[in-house]
Design a protein around this nucleic acid. Structure first.
Lengths: 205, 205, 205, 205
DNA sequence: TATGAATGAGCCTTCATTCAT
DNA sequence: AATGAATGAAGGCTCATTCAT
């Protein structure tokens, strides 16, 4: 019954999109605070104020919850990025924007940050999914900006743009991980420019 | 089962008191290939050629296996680093050595690298342990070299050494993670110098 | 497995919310016949016609099963006693009623008797729970009747009522234990009056 | 090799009887304090100051430890009783002596009392062994004294001696159980006469 | 859609016992 | 006789998922 199923899913998306989000928010909170393996589906349901079985009306499995958190955030993040970058042609400004958006998003939701920096890296299985999507879209955006900066003569051309992109991403990622593990309270987003500055200097001719 | 028995005796004879190491090696392999949660203690025992219960003569729990892999590697790594850095006074050379040792160690044992880059980051619980030791010792070594380079006038003084250290570590860490997730075969250690080069350029006056 | 399914539904329909009781009955049977330590939770579940996990929806642990058998029986026994004694003022008649109810209850359910006379006395832990409830309520009832009989001049006053109560309880308890260990078939309750007779004679002035 | 085995056992009994007792004493202590099922053979060995495997040179199994505690105590108890009763012809004095010896023995060794009153009653299996020996020898001694008292015209003849014996034993047994569960410190043996007094009064013509 | 009681496979850990030394 | 490291069977409990209502 693909037709019925598709119709159902459509209706669900429209009408009950709110409940899907509700569950995802609850899952984010619990995965962050207890860890993916220790958080039980029943807990997520309770946190969302629904019955355990209801989770399975919206998600295929517990894994699907984690994947959905990731995908929703990524989709939204890429959308934001596309908008923010629209009309910005200077490659270094683009890098700066990307870095700021990245840390800003995580810095605004601690639970989400924990899920991204810790829980999603549970297993090679998730890691690979994580990597093949995050890096394919987000890293490509960074890489392209770097390549542009090289073409424009701002950056040294002898460094591989893809290698450089990983370097930048790694530094930003480390900032995020440090932030969630730190007991001090500071704005994560504030470090985006610092990291980019250091990176740009390293890349300049 | 004379074969198993003979194998067992052989292992025993060779490894002497090294049954702990034998188990740890088996655990590293299985945790890397199946994931910590999916690898069963019984599998680890089988891989090590011993009975399941024997694991518990050497380790308190399954968690303890993971923690022990981490601690043994860290202890050894720090020792190696101390030796390698002995008598090396140039701070940039020190950075280069640290980065090379780091990627070299992981690049030589794929299973170990997977455990370090993926499995150990399962949960905040392990992450914190990981961080409070790895970063306290290893990052401090990086930070000190950076501070020395600043004092010596090689590096700009306005960048916080601790921030810069995180940047460098993040970039190296990302290289390691990319390496284990990559299907291509290349020498991880080969990237250490590239990363350091980029970093040094970024830090120079 | 339509048969199992149908049986399950049947049990459910009949017992209504009485699944707890169903499990308790199964546990009583198995604990009695195999002993608490040798009876497995899975066996209890199978006997009750439910899945192993279901037991844990109703009871915290295997220990909790044993404790619950005890508590349910005690609660019911005390209730029965209260009703039976209502309006009975003669202290010796009260003693006779208590003794008869005690042995009658056990004599009617061999499995329950085994659990009470044998399995519940497994360990100091259970014994203390057993004692602090059984003796505090049941023994007190006996003691009070004895004290009344002393006040009324039926019984010698120089014997401590609490000591006398233990004596009587001990004799009844021994009858119960002998009964469950005996291979002969006889009515346990029939010994209540004999024991009380002997006791009353011993206490009379 | 029954001959060799027998020779070995003989030597063992003579020379190493001390070690057997040592183990039995350790077992009594641990069974009493932790319960038979929670006490581990390794603990018993440690308490006795020997290696775990050594226990099995003296006892067939863990069960055998418990049974041996029982049998050693019973054998000794019956021997003591035989000596004490030698030349005592008055049946009521005999009862008094038996009761005193019984409570005295338990009252002198709290751990032993716990094993007898609690641990030995773990399961029907032990209970039956317990009963078929303790009751066959000890209860018979009581029963015979009672029958003598009846023949001599001290006791009413219409009460079955065997029933009466159980009554007396039950009362004494309850005193012992109460004593081990009590937090107060009092001499258990002191209650023997009180119990016998009450019993004798109940039996008198 | 929603419920939540029920399922049952799965796994860590314990510990009595053995046996090479 | 003694050791104690090794064994491996066994079982309590959890929890993702299903399904009758």
């Amino acid at each position: 019954m693909p037709v019925a199923a598709s119709a159902r899913r459509h209706a669900r998306t429209l009408q009950a999109g709110g409940k899907r989000d509700l569950i995802l928010k609850a899952a984010t909170k619990l995965f962050a605070r207890r860890g993916f393996f220790n958080a039980q589906v029943a807990d997520v349901a309770r946190e969302a104020g629904i019955a355990a079985g209801t989770v399975y009306l919206y998600f295929k499995s517990k894994d699907d919850l984690l994947i959905s958190i990731f995908e929703r955030t990524m989709r939204q993040g890429m959308e934001d990025a596309r908008q923010a970058l629209e009309g910005v042609s200077d490659p270094i400004t683009r890098l700066r924007l990307l870095a700021n958006l990245h840390l800003d998003r995580l810095g605004q939701d601690h639970d989400l940050a924990v899920v991204f920096q810790v829980e999603l890296r549970q297993s090679i299985k998730f890691m690979e999914r994580f990597t093949s999507t995050l890096l394919r879209d987000y890293l490509h955006a960074i890489r392209d900006a770097i390549a542009d900066a090289q073409s424009a003569g701002y950056f040294r051309a002898e460094v591989s743009p893809s290698f450089a992109a990983k370097t930048l991403f790694g530094a930003l990622d480390e900032m995020a991980t440090n932030w969630i593990l730190s007991r001090r309270h500071y704005a994560l987003a504030g470090q985006a420019d610092e990291v980019v500055d250091l990176f740009v200097r390293g890349m300049q001719r």
